[in-house]
C-alpha cells in the first residue's frame, strides 16, 4: 500500500506514466485507487507518431496493471522519507 499512499500525496501534480506497451503519457494526476489505476487530466502523449489518435485525448483512465513506470515530479517527493518507507516495507514492517 506504500505506493498507493505515495501517489495519493501526488494528486494534482504533474506525472508521466509509462505503459507496458511503451505509450508514455504526461498529465496531472487526477486520482489513483488501490489497484493503482490512474486517472490523468490535461494529458500529453510523448510518442504521438505511434499513437496519433491520442493527440486528441485530454484525460484518461489507465489500468494499474499495465503501468510500467510512473515518473514522479522531483520537487514533490521527499526522497529520504520515501527511502526510509521502502526500507521498512522491504523488511516486512
Amino acid at each position: 500500500m506504500l505506493f498507493f499512499s505515495l501517489f495519493k500525496t501526488l494528486v494534482g501534480k504533474e506525472v508521466t506514466v509509462e505503459l507496458k506497451n511503451d505509450l508514455c503519457i504526461s498529465g496531472a494526476l487526477h486520482s489513483v485507487d488501490q489497484y493503482l489505476n490512474i486517472k490523468l487530466t490535461n494529458t500529453r502523449v510523448h510518442n504521438e507518431q505511434k499513437y496519433p489518435h491520442m493527440m486528441s485525448v485530454r484525460n484518461c483512465f489507465i489500468r494499474g496493471s499495465v503501468v510500467r513506470y510512473v515518473h514522479l515530479p522531483p520537487g514533490a517527493v521527499d526522497v529520504e522519507v520515501l527511502h526510509d518507507a521502502t526500507r521498512r516495507e522491504a523488511r516486512g514492517g
Partner: peptide, 15 residues
C-alpha cells in the same frame, strides 16, 4: 482487463 486505457477524445482536428 483487456482495456489498457480509455479516454475522452474531443479534438476535432484529430477525429
Amino acid at each position: 482487463p483487456q482495456i489498457v486505457m480509455h479516454a475522452i477524445s474531443s479534438d476535432p482536428s484529430a477525429y
